[in-house]
Design a protein around this nucleic acid. Structure first.
Length: 607
RNA sequence: GGCCCCGUAGUUCAACGGACAGAAUAGAAGUUUCCUAAACUUUAGAUACAGGUUCGAUUCCUGUCGGGGCUACCA
C-alpha cells in the first residue's frame, strides 16, 4: 500500500515550508484532523504553527499551503480557508478507491500479519496482561465485571494490532480472607456443599465469609462493651480472628487437615468462577495461584534480607525501606513469618517473567491500588530485577452506586451472575414486546437474548473512559435505546437484512460500478467515518482504551441509520448507485462487527 | 494532616492545546402504503470558581471550593 494521504500532505507541507522559509518545522506541529461537519471539506490543517516561519498572516499561510497541496497531490481537488484553518476537499475517486480496497476484507481495521510491530528483537516478546484477579472468598461482582471486560478488551486490542499477548489470571487463593470462610464453614457449616444446598460454589463460600463477619461482629461488640476496647483492638482480640490467624499459620505449615478443607472449598469456588467467566465470554491463557507464588516471593524477600537490601525489626517482621523514594517503609513478612500481598506479588512477578520473558507486564487493577503498584515497582527495583520497569499498572476507575461505593458489609454489592441474569431477562422482555422473534427457534431465541443482554452490559461498561469512575444505577443504567450496545447490534442486523436480500453475485460485481460515481453528503460522511476505523483501533491500542472503539462504533452506527433512513439501497433505481450503497453497507457491517469484537460483543444477523 | 485522581446540559457519557463544546437519556413537537420505528427529524439545555501561560484552554500551571481513593502486620 502506498503512503497514506495524511502522510503525503504532511510531507508536502513540511517540504514547501522548508523551500520557502528554509525552516525545518516540527513534524508534531502538523495537525491534520477531520473537517468539522459545519464546514466544507474532508481534512483540515491547522496553520497557526506555520505563520511565524512563513511570515504571513494565517489566511495567507493557508492559501499558500492550499494552492501547493492542490498542485502537488492529485487526491486534493480543492480547498477553502476559514480563519487559520485550511479545509481540503479530497476527490470522490480517493474515497471510492478506499471502499474498493477494503470491500470484502473481513479483517478490516485489524493489523495484517505484515503490519504488526516489527518482529525483531524486543518487539517479538509477548505482552502479559493480567486481569480479573479474584479472591476466593467471595463471588464476582460488578467491579470484577468492569475489570474483566476491560482487561479482556485490552488484550484483544493488543492482539489485533499485531502484538503477541498472554492473558493471565492471578487467583488470590491464600491468605487471611479465605481462612475466614474456611473457619466459618468448619465451625458452622455442618458439611454443607454446593450439591447439598444447590448453591453455586463461589456463592456458598461467599456466604460463609459473611457468616464469619457477622459472628465476628458479635464478639467485637461484646469485647467493646465488657472490656471497653476500641473496635480496632476488639477485632484483633476477638477469638474468631485469633482462630482465623491460627488457621493461616497452620495453612502455611501445610497442616493436612487444613489443606484438605482449603482445596475442597477452592474447588467449589473455581467451578463457580468458571461458569461466570464463560457466560461473560472471557478466557485466560494461564492461571496463576498465589498459593504457588508466595513461597517464591518469600524466598526472594529473604534473599534481599541476606543481601542487606531489606531489614528485620526486633519483632521479626521484615521491611523494605523506601525513604529514598519519599515513601514509607513497607512490610514484606509479618512477625509470625507469614506473607502479605506484596510478598506474593514479588513472587508472581518473578514467575511470570521466567515463564514468558515478556517485554511488558500489564496489571489491570483498580486505581485504589495505585500506591501498592508504585511500591511494588520500587521494591523490585531495589532487588535489581530487570522486569521492574516492564511492569505497568493499568489502573482503572471504580464502579459506584448512587449511594457510593459498593460495600459488602452493607450488602450493596451487585453480584455478577445476578446482573447478567437481569440483562438477559430484560433483553428477552424487550424483544418480545417488539414482537421480533416469532420466527426464531427456541435455541435461537435463547442465544439472541444472551447476545443482546450481554451486549447492553458490556457496551455500557466499556464505553466509559477506563480511567474514570463510573456510576451504575441498578434500575435505569442499562438502556437498549440510544448510545447502547443493542442500538449498534440492531444496526448491524438491519444491514445484514439488506445484504441477505441482495443476490450474492452483486456484491462481487459491484466493484465494477464504482468508477466515476459521485457521492452525496451522507454517503461521504459515512465513508469518511469508516476510513477512520484502522486509526481508531491503533489509537485505542496505544492508549489501552477500549472506550475509544466503543464511542467510534456508535458514531458509525448512528451515521448509517441516518443514511439508511434517507436513501434506499436495494430500491434505488440506478444500478450503479445501488451497487455502491451495497458495498458501503457491507463495509459498515464489517466495521461494526470488528469494532464490537474488540469489545468482546457479538452482533446478531437478525434481531 | 500528607499524597493521588476527578468536577462538562436535570441525568449518564464524548471532545491528540484548535473552528460555534458533541451524543444519549429525561422534557416538548413530529415521521411508517417504502430495504427491521431497538430507527429517523425538529426543539430546549453544560465546561464548579478565580487567576496565569498561549494566536487559541474543557484540555497545561497555581489557588479556592466540592467528590472519591490511598496513607494497614487487609487484599
Amino acid at each position: 500500500m502506498d503512503m497514506k494521504i495524511e502522510e503525503k500532505i504532511a510531507a508536502v507541507v513540511a517540504e514547501s515550508i522548508w523551500q520557502v522559509s528554509g525552516q525545518q518545522i516540527d513534524p508534531a506541529s502538523i495537525v491534520l484532523q477531520k473537517t468539522r461537519k459545519d464546514f466544507a471539506g474532508d481534512l483540515t490543517l491547522v496553520v497557526f504553527p506555520f505563520v511565524k516561519a512563513l511570515k504571513r498572516s494565517p489566511e495567507q499561510t493557508a492559501e499558500f499551503l492550499g494552492e501547493t497541496l492542490v498542485k502537488r497531490i492529485i487526491e486534493v481537488e480543492g480547498y477553502n480557508v476559514v480563519k487559520g484553518f485550511l479545509n481540503m476537499v479530497l476527490t470522490s475517486g480517493f474515497w471510492l478507491e478506499f471502499l474498493a480496497g477494503e470491500a470484502g476484507n473481513d479483517r478490516f481495521g485489524y493489523a495484517g500479519e505484515e503490519q504488526g510491530p516489527h518482529k525483531t528483537g524486543n518487539e517479538k516478546k509477548p505482552v502479559v496482561v493480567e486481569f480479573s484477579s479474584p479472591n476466593t472468598n467471595k463471588p464476582l461482582h460488578l467491579g470484577h465485571i468492569r475489570n474483566n471486560l476491560f482487561g479482556y478488551a485490552v488484550s484483544l486490542l493488543l492482539e489485533r494490532t499485531g502484538n503477541k499477548v498472554v492473558k493471565v489470571n492471578l487467583v488470590n487463593d491464600r491468605g487471611i480472607h479465605i481462612c475466614k470462610s474456611m473457619l466459618a464453614w468448619m465451625k458452622f457449616g455442618r458439611g454443607e456443599t454446593p450439591e447439598s444446598t444447590g448453591k453455586k460454589g463461589d456463592k456458598l463460600v461467599g456466604d460463609y465469609y459473611v457468616i464469619f463477619e457477622i459472628k465476628l461482629r458479635r464478639q467485637v461488640a461484646v469485647l467493646m462493651a465488657e472490656k471497653g476496647l476500641s473496635e480496632e483492638e476488639a477485632r484483633k482480640e476477638a477469638p474468631l480472628m485469633q482462630e482465623a490467624q491460627s488457621l493461616l499459620r497452620r495453612w502455611e505449615a501445610r497442616d493436612p487437615e487444613v489443606l484438605t478443607v482449603w482445596k475442597q472449598m477452592n474447588a467449589w469456588v473455581y467451578e463457580g468462577f468458571n461458569a461466570t467467566y464463560k457466560r461473560m465470554g472471557v478466557a485466560f491463557d494461564k492461571t496463576y495461584y498465589e498459593s504457588d507464588t508466595y513461597l517464591l516471593g518469600r524466598e526472594i524477600v529473604l534473599e534481599g534480607l541476606r543481601e542487606g537490601l531489606f531489614y528485620k525489626k526486633e519483632d521479626g517482621s521484615v521491611w523494605a525501606g523506601l525513604s529514598e523514594h519519599n515513601l514509607n517503609e513497607k512490610l514484606l513478612l509479618r512477625t509470625d513469618g507469614t506473607s502479605v500481598y506484596m510478598t506474593q506479588d514479588i513472587g508472581t512477578a518473578q514467575l511470570r517473567y521466567d515463564d514468558f520473558l515478556p517485554r511488558k507486564m500489564i496489571y489491570v487493577v483498580g486505581n485504589e491500588q495505585n500506591h501498592h503498584f508504585n511500591v511494588l515497582k520500587k521494591v523490585l527495583g531495589k532487588l535489581g530485577k530487570p522486569y521492574a520497569d516492564a511492569i505497568q499498572h493499568l489502573s482503572y476507575g471504580m464502579v459506584e452506586l448512587p449511594q457510593g461505593r459498593m460495600k459488602s458489609r452493607e450488602g450493596t454489592v451487585v453480584d455478577a451472575d445476578d446482573l447478567m441474569d437481569e440483562m438477559v431477562a430484560t433483553a428477552q422482555k424487550t424483544t418480545e414486546e417488539l414482537g421480533k422473534t416469532q420466527h426464531f427457534s427456541e435455541v435461537e431465541k435463547k442465544d439472541l437474548y444472551h447476545v443482546i443482554g450481554m451486549g447492553a452490559l458490556k457496551y455500557f461498561i466499556l464505553k466509559v473512559d477506563p480511567q474514570k469512575n463510573m456510576l451504575f444505577k441498578p434500575e435505569e443504567s442499562i438502556d437498549f435505546n440510544g448510545n447502547t450496545g443493542p442500538f449498534i447490534q440492531y444496526t448491524h442486523a438491519r444491514i445484514c437484512s439488506v445484504l441477505r436480500k441482495a443476490v450474492p453475485e452483486r456484491l462481487k460485481q459491484a466493484l465494477n460500478s464504482l468508477d466515476g460515481m459521485s457521492l452525496n453528503e451522507k454517503e461521504k460522511q459515512l465513508l469518511k467515518s469508516l476510513y477512520d476505523f484502522p486509526d481508531v483501533v491503533l489509537e485505542a491500542a496505544t492508549e489501552l482504551s477500549p472506550a475509544k472503539v466503543a464511542n467510534y462504533v456508535y458514531e458509525v452506527a448512528r451515521e448509517f441509520n441516518q443514511f439508511y433512513h434517507e436513501y434506499s439501497i436495494l430500491n434505488e433505481p440506478d444500478r450503479g448507485i445501488s451497487d455502491f450503497r451495497l458495498l458501503l453497507s457491507q463495509l459498515t457491517a464489517t466495521t461494526i462487527r470488528n469494532g464490537m469484537a474488540l469489545l468482546s460483543i457479538d452482533v446478531p444477523e437478525r434481531m
